[in-house]
Amino acid sequence: MVRFVVRRLLQMVIVFFGTTLVVYAMMFGAQGDPIQALAGEKPVSAAQRAYLTEHFHLDHGFWYRYADYVGGLLRGDLGDTLTLRPISSVLAGAWPYTLKLAGLAMVVVVVVGVGAGVLAGVRRGGLFDAATLALTLVVIGVPVVVLGFLGQYLLGIRLRLFPVANEGDLYSLILPALLLGMLSLATTVRLTRTTVVENLRADYAKTARAKGLSRTRVVGVHVLRNSLIPVVTFLGVELGSLMAGAVVIENIFNIPGVGFTLARAVRTEDGPTVVTIVSLLVIVFLVVNLAVDLLYAVLDPRIRYA
């Protein structure tokens, strides 16, 4: 177990250097003149230009700058944005929004997704099953951008159930979280339904019934516990698409979270910010997936990491 974790952590180090290198190279290659991009149409004085060039080592080669950047990261220095704000303080303001948004989305996915999936699985072939099948297929087929605007328009503008943009409170995050969770939600429902149907047919479910247990207990304890194994794995992987979706949703709803900051940094060719945020997202993704793998072993005793 300990060896497994250590090995995974070592793998994460390699993945970390790999992704930062790739993202850094991409930003490096895509950049025209970041200083001019920062200033827009306004002229940049020679002194300003000299200072920024010096500060970001713009006159040095790729490897020098990459090594300098990673060295900073390893010392815990996330660097500065092109506007000379420390990236750490920018992120400190942005993280809470994204965490709340993603957390809410995850709650929706787990509670509604697993709940509806179990119900559809237990009543296989029934009206609820057919309805969720149709609904989830539609949702899976629609890109998150369309879903976001559609939801904002219908629920926010027409029905006025939710605010159409961030107002700083948790309530205004509900609609974005709902829409963000929608994609994973649809897949979660399908996946849960399928595994529940499969497990209901399993011999052990029959044994549980032969023991005289109630249907609620057979489904809620025996079947559910087994059905959760693939669902949890899926949700871990799905965190990646949740993060990608957050970039889109945060922009649609004007939520100043990490995704919003990232999108703005891409627009303004703010290389250091883009690379730092992407690297952090990669780390979050890796850590969550490690946690999922460990959770997997807790859920399924047949899996033991040596």
Binding site: Y204, A208, I229
Partner: peptide, 21 residues
């Protein structure tokens, strides 16, 4: 009645037992 009056043992004990408990 099930379990208390009439109980049953199945053919394949591996699949008849719940793997996660």
């Amino acid at each position: 009645i099930r379990g208390r009056e009439i109980a049953m043992v199945f053919q394949d004990a591996l699949s008849a037992l719940n793997p996660v408990f």
